[in-house]
Design a protein around this nucleic acid. Sequence first.
RNA 1: GGGAGUGUGGCGCAGGUGGUUAGCGCGCUGGGUUGUGGUCCCAGAGGUCGCGGGUUCGAGUCCCGUCGCUCCUCCCA
Length: 421
Amino acid sequence: MAYESVRGMRDILPDEADYWTRLEATIRKIARRFNYREIRPPLVEHTELFSRGIGAATDVVNKEMYTFPDKKGRSLTLRPEATASVVRAYVEHGMTTQDPFQKLYYIGPMFRYEKPQKGRSRQFHQYGVEAIGSLDPSLDVEVISLAWSLMHELGLGGLSLRLNSIGCAADHERYREALRAHFAPHIGSMCEDCQRRYDDNPLRILDCKNKICQPYIADAPGSTEHLCDDCADHFERVKELLDQLGLDYVVDPHLVRGLDYYTRTVFELTSKDLGAQDALLGGGRYDDLVKMIGGPDTPGVGFAGGMERLILVLKEREEQVMEHRIDLFLVTLGDAGRTLALDLSNGLRGEGLSVDLDYRGRSFRKQMTQANKLSARYLLVLGDDEATSKKGKLKEMDSGEETEVALSAEEIMRKIEPLSD
RNA sequence: GGGAGUGUGGCGCAGGUGGUUAGCGCGCUGGGUUGUGGUCCCAGAGGUCGCGGGUUCGAGUCCCGUCGCUCCUCCCA
């Protein structure tokens, strides 16, 4: 093999790409229903944006970023997630004063240097929404509701939404202390990672899956026990609204998330159809992020979802590849037929039909085979006879029926309803 | 980062204890006389057996290393 793709980065070939375009279309449709508008930030940002925004102590920033110097020695990073970029764009383009309430969504590749495995690659794709500029709990709920709508639209089952509130920055501090107090007597017998986390960020201990740590984590205090009045009220309101809308969730007082910018509401949607990488999407509030990045004090809420994992589920469910049909195949015989075919195909494509013909000088028989393989809906044989008479037989491939047709783009269009695309 | 498995033509696989020209299915190409397909028949192309060392008279087959992939763990999307 002369060259191989870079580790953890794979080609999406046409058969699979059909699933991707469909998934993207569904995401756009749902985003539109909730009136979120697309934003496309660059894939590369100044490293500092991520190390400050996401948090220097997180795994993502610590060991998973694709960071490199550019030709002038500036440190750049391929984005490991998009929220920081969206917020940067929000501030950079003056939305803070011009139109401070923004509902945005994005779709695109992200990069994290991790060990690849099922549902996790180094270049992967996320979609996500960000609602910036309001502290209203109904906005938290809208974002969650959007997530549910998307899953519903995709027909995904076996889902569960875990929900929690980790409070504001002041609450974090109190909670961290409470956790340290709780773990202090046991920390010596807990895993190495947790011993490090104990100092760095004890919240992260709650994510530990190590068996030896489980018993101590199980009876650790929940974050909701340390919420200030405002945060507690906010959380109550979120839950009420979710109930009111009939959106299922389970409160998990130990749910904390991997990125430092989260405040108050955090949530995670998992699927039991996915194995080890079961998180479909995750998100929450980030009321301090805009300020952290240099903007005015502005709250926000959003989530990001992994697309590879959705594709995995969608493909598994459908078994065979998506049907890919063309409207018309032109079989050509001789120079006159070919000239006619080139002319007609041009006209018909202009009318919006998907038309193809042979470009490899293949025999009549092989052209028929090709038409078949392309699942052409209709077929037209063009030879000397057709070239002189300007009439042909339009064959419907599924039924085998043939109908006489005048050989002009207009007449042929009249006989074929294009596939809706 | 830790653990396990795996790597043979485009894809899916065979190739007991090492022995001559590496097979099969699908796919691909051509043909079954350039006017009608999906079936069928015939022929053919395509592999430095992931890569690099080593053992041996001889290695796809044994050993070491390396890279990739897969799964678990970890983390997350």
